[in-house]
Design a protein around this nucleic acid. Sequence first.
DNA 1: TTTGATGT
Length: 312
Amino acid sequence: MLIRHVSTVITSCCAGVYIGYKYKENVASVKHYFLSNIYAKSAPPSTNDSLVNSENNVNIPFQSESSKSKVVSNAGQIVKYGFPSTDNLRSYEDFMLSYDRRTRTASWVLEHLTPEKVNRVDGVERSKLKFLEDESIHGYHRATNKDYLGSGYDRGHLAAAANHRQSLNAMSQTFLLSNIAPQVGAGFNRDSWNSLEKYVRALARKNKNVYVCTGPLFLPRKEADGKLYVRYEVIGENHVAVPTHFFKVLVVENSQGQFELQSYVMPNQPLPEVRLQNYLVPLEVIERAAGLLFFQNIPKKMFTKINARQTP
DNA sequence: TTTGATGT
């Protein structure tokens, strides 16, 4: 049962990605990304993968007989001199992000769009703004403008500037380099990815609410020895990671209160002029690749449409 | 229109 389900997912995900590339030379390499055995070796979803149980004790998977009666943790002593930390969450005026210190870019950025938010407001213009380091992030892990200078990559917004027009402050925060990732300029950031962003704003104008989650992917690829490797460039003194792909997951709530889900993956490469629909990828594929779970508070059965298909 | 880089 499970095996059949998983193979269906793999087939459909490859088909979805394949369509996007039928005109390109790199079909084989992209196919490898999604044929990765990380999808094949599926495990049933766990409802509780937390290390902390309901009594707020730390779960210890293998207890000795003597310790079984009382579950304890030495956490207090262990972290006495400091915790390496994952204080990665940032809330800005109109978007939130989770920062990945290792890649010097965000793992995900979350936005809520409405018709009002994407309307033009006098005085809120990107020409007044500059890309800035995010000083809330430690200098060791912070991307700088110098990292991007001469790299050949654009400083690509994750939360798009034009999605946050209600105030200059809101828009200025999208220029923090924590919200930026290295993107191929011509053919990607300025073209196909920009088309996707414009499409999202068009949806925001026509619907009650749009929730958008955007982030980078670092996908494995099969190399000459037949093994899978994740390979990506790093730029500048701070080694800002250049993602292999980007994802964008949308939840659209219309005026009737119906929900639609759309999930996209685009490779960080110059792309031919193709329909956005060709980049729709099953949500599960993105969740597995990114290590994230999106919009979990909406039961799947609530979606009337998923990736352009009416749900039964 | 919106996405950028680069040079003065």
